[in-house]
Design a protein around this nucleic acid. Structure first.
Length: 436
RNA sequence: GUGGUCGUAGCUCAGCUGGUAGAGCACCGGGUUGUGGUCCCGGGUGUCGCGGGUUCAAGUCCCGUCGAUCACCCCA
């Protein structure tokens, strides 16, 4: 019985998931990020500390706990990896070296209503860089490139990273004299869904005058592949120190991104991000052709998340929504694995007494890193081949004749267990994508 | 969490105004004491999501519930 929002994949789908996780891990480490795992639970107050009151946090409670026992009710499952990480940094700040680069690939939980690409239990692959006191801006340009590297190695639709800076929005709104910039940001963020007229209506509700709303929408419409957005913003005639700061930061990020990965990043001044701990750069990533499914990778800069007394650890992070990505693509058969098992070779069995010999062959292959299993029964060879075919196992080994057959092509050749090697692409399952 | 749509075999679906379930593909067995995919023959493999109600009778109507999905909310 399925439980809403808690997805369970089939074997072939899990192979795709693992391939994505492996790719993320490999690339993260290639960029020098160290792996970390934090506990699944945090004190509720930690989870809610940064104004995350709207988060549907799952609480942890013992079955035997009586009504009055509130000792465990203060624990909740984490809804992202950034908040636990910030806590971890504070707790271990004396033992960590800064700037600290870590990646974390773990499940997160949110008690929201599930939909395609939205789950209650899901994987996030998160990278963050934190430093003590101050954090250089170049990290904000580095992160999108790392994510792009991860995604480039996977058979995915073309991606588009949309970048903005909260200071641009906040400064612009301040400069306009808008009373509640946060509410205005939330309204403008919906422009793709409800259109300019809808946003104007929402802005009116939070006390934004028509003339101001017009400018807000004009700002939201700005979208450039380079730093030319700066001039476009200036033309709107709003001035504010925070706005200037934001524009400069965003231009730096976009220029750096263009230098290393042209065509990937766009300055998209309408995006805002919901999580309110972001203070500067914010990222959002869409897959072209799947825009409706939302962002599969987002994050941003936070300056106040890890702070305690005089200790400040500003950071920037970005998080790949693995489960969302898979939910979208697996659900449409746009991502498939070449086989549903890791097995590369099935050793056929002529009769039960020769199982020992078959096991030795399998052992010799495994010793050289070739995933191998021995046929479950000494059924007719046709059936044993079919066993392999159903699972996508590419090779069947016949001990009698000491031959190995590629059952896709039908080619069968003499082979020795301590010498034969499959082609590189066949050793492990591979994943491939198909999308319009 | 609020509201809408949907839920029949492994998959895609049919089943009219209620009369105890069907097709294609897939799958299984045989033709072929032994190397599959073609072909031929044979097989329906099902708690019609689940629970209750109305009725002589429910896949079909009503209520609830679970699940999927969409919108809101929020977001990976």
């Amino acid at each position: 019985m399925a439980i809403s929002g808690f997805p369970e994949w089939l074997p072939a789908q899990r192979i795709v998931e693992q391939a994505v996780i492996d790719r993320a891990r490999r690339v993260f480490e290639l960029y020098g990020f160290t792996s970390l795992e934090t506990r699944a639970v945090e004190p509720l107050e930690t989870l809610l500390a940064k104004g995350e009151t709207s988060k549907e946090v799952y609480l942890l409670r013992r079955l035997q706990a009586d009504e009055k026992d509130t000792s465990d009710s203060t624990l909740g499952l984490h809804f992202d990896l950034t908040v636990p990480f910030a806590r971890y940094v504070l707790e271990n700040s004396g033992k960590l070296q800064f700037p600290f680069r870590r990646y974390q690939i773990q499940k997160c939980w949110r008690g929201e209503r599930p939909q395609e690409g939205r789950y209650r239990e899901f994987y996030q692959a998160d990278i963050d860089i934190v430093d003590r006191d101050t954090l250089p801006a170049h990290y904000e340009a580095e992160l999108p490139l790392i994510i792009a590297d991860v995604l480039r190695g996977l058979p995915l639709p073309p991606i588009r990273m949309q970048i903005n800076n909260r200071k641009v929005l906040k400064g612009f709104y301040q400069g306009l004299g808008i009373v509640d910039p946060e509410a205005a940001i939330r309204a403008v963020d919906k422009v793709d869904k409800i259109g300019p007229a809808g946003v104007a209506a929402e802005l009116a509700q939070v006390g934004v005058a028509d003339a101001q709303a017009k400018l807000c929408l004009a700002l939201a419409e700005i979208s450039t592949p380079d730093s030319s957005f700066v001039d476009e913003v200036r033309k709107l005639g709003v001035s504010d120190p925070l706005l200037d700061e934001g524009l400069a930061e965003l231009a730096t990020v976009i220029d750096a991104a263009n230098e290393h990965a042209p065509g990937l990043c766009f300055a998209e001044l309408k995006i805002a991000r919901g999580l309110d701990y972001y203070t500067g750069t914010v990222y959002e990533t869409i897959m072209q052709g799947y825009e409706r499914a939302g962002s599969v990778c987002s994050g941003g800069r936070y300056d106040n998340l890890a702070t305690s007394g005089n200790d400040r650890f500003p950071g920037v992070g970005i998080s790949l929504g693995i489960t969302r990505l898979l939910g979208i693509l697996l659900g449409r058969d746009a991502l498939t694995a070449s086989r549903s098992v890791p097995t590369c070779v099935l050793v056929a069995l002529a009769d039960e007494p020769s199982r020992g010999a078959a096991n030795r062959i399998a052992g010799a292959l495994r010793a050289r890193g070739i995933p191998t299993e021995v046929s479950p029964t000494a059924a007719k060879y046709g059936k044993q081949i079919r066993y392999a075919e159903r699972r996508g196992i590419p090779f069947v080994w016949f001990p009698d004749s000491s031959e190995v057959k590629d059952i896709r092509s039908g080619e069968q050749i003499a082979a020795a267990p301590d010498a034969w090697t499959p082609p590189d692409g066949d050793l492990y399952p591979t994943i491939s994508g198909s999308f319009g």
